[in-house]
Design a protein around this nucleic acid. Structure first.
Lengths: 222, 222
DNA sequence: TACGGTATTGAGCAATTGCTCAAACTATTC
DNA sequence: GAATAGTTTGAGCAATTGCTCAATACCGTA
């Protein structure tokens, strides 16, 4: 939660007091609940129990369960976005960037942050109107993607695609130990994409060749 | 008013009279409900309304809502699997097979069958134990994959991967008009896979070259 | 027509949900 | 200590859920 900057306006200041701790605890409880029992199971009482407080506080501080879940999404999304942005800034090559993104994503997986994104994206389907709100909350990722594209060379927003593709893969492959889909490891997905788009392999390979001069030598761009 | 007839259509008002008809109507209602209001919204009353019968019939015929949803999954899965299997039998080449699979998948998308699979896979997460049952119901796909692998040449279960990859893509990209992810069209996903796995491109290309003697017939943009 | 089993219905129960509310607690300032 | 504002609590309401059940409509058969 890097809140750097001398003066940063824009964040709506809420009443400061003991309530800040409660808010934080509720958000942490929401993140934990989303990971453990999913979107459908994340009721006000479930979250409040994990936060160690009364369920009425959910409505006192956030107005509704949905708003609390969106706040949790914001929290996780901002944390992830900040990490990827920093990796983008510090990367000296695409290979470098890819490696950083993969490390960050792995950490996010362990911490359950990926689960929060997946649950909010998928769970929003069951609540009319929530999908648009989730999309709005994730809008900063698109801005990030544009920056990443400009910093990259090929027009492929690789820095964005890494987390989103992994997310897409995780959504299906990670579900409930579903053997069929879980058996599709990354290599097979890549192989599929190749076979599925065999007609475009040559063109893409040209691009890949430009971006990756050799397998282990890092082509430097910036 | 509605006459009984085994005509699969979108009209949800079906008069029930006999047991078999009621069962079929309930399954159709479940398929429609899963597509329209998702897993969480597919309650017994919601499904029964779409089937034009009383909600108690859900429990009379299927024992529980979950069993009805699983029956709907079976129905859709069997239909899809049969279509893909026939395409696999009749295909004279992998390119041929790929084209057939794509056509079938497109039809499944329009008919809402893909939505049923997605909803059952994703929604099962919120019900403890349901994930394993969904996995068990989808087990025939793995057997199909093995047959497909044997009939193919490269060891890549392309006929299976086509629907599952499209499914994975659709799960994320199709969600609620989520602009960020929806902008990831197939070409970009393929491009990502290439960039992400640049080190394996050469090996995979060799396999592709063996599998696709003449690949330009797909008419895709080059 | 009467009978017996099947299919269907509406009412209703227990549990859970999001959410409200009045009372009670806490911390700060007089 | 008292007043005030902010925070927390437990009870409770209306709606919805999965599911049960007794009553009844339906249908083939005797």
């Amino acid at each position: 939660m890097a809140k750097s900057g001398p003066r940063r306006a824009g964040a709506p200041d809420i009443k400061v007091g003991r309530s800040a701790d409660t808010r934080a605890a509720l958000i942490r409880g929401a993140v934990a609940a989303l990971g453990d029992v999913g979107f459908a199971g994340s009721s006000a009482r479930e979250i409040a129990d994990r936060a160690g407080c009364n369920q009425a506080l959910v409505f006192y501080h956030f107005g509704s369960v949905t708003e609390l879940l969106l706040a949790a999404l914001d929290d996780v999304s901002a944390r992830r976005l900040a990490a990827y942005s920093q990796a983008l800034d510090e990367a000296s090559s695409l290979t470098d960037l890819l490696e950083s993104a993969r490390t960050i994503f792995s950490e996010d997986l362990d911490s359950g942050h990926v689960a929060v994104l997946v649950e909010m994206i998928t769970g929003a389907q069951s609540t009319p109107g929530l999908g648009e709100q989730v999309a709005a909350r994730l809008a900063p990722w698109r801005d990030f993607a544009e920056v990443a594209v400009r910093k990259a060379v090929t027009g492929s927003p690789i820095a964005l695609l890494v987390p989103t593709r992994e997310l897409a893969h995780g959504v299906v492959a990670g579900f409930l130990g579903l053997e069929l889909l879980a058996s599709l490891d990354g290599d097979r997905v890549a192989a599929l994409a190749l076979f599925d788009r065999a007609g475009q392999v040559a063109r893409l390979l040209d691009m890949a060749g430009a971006a990756f001069p050799a397998e282990d030598s890092t082509g430097d761009q910036t």
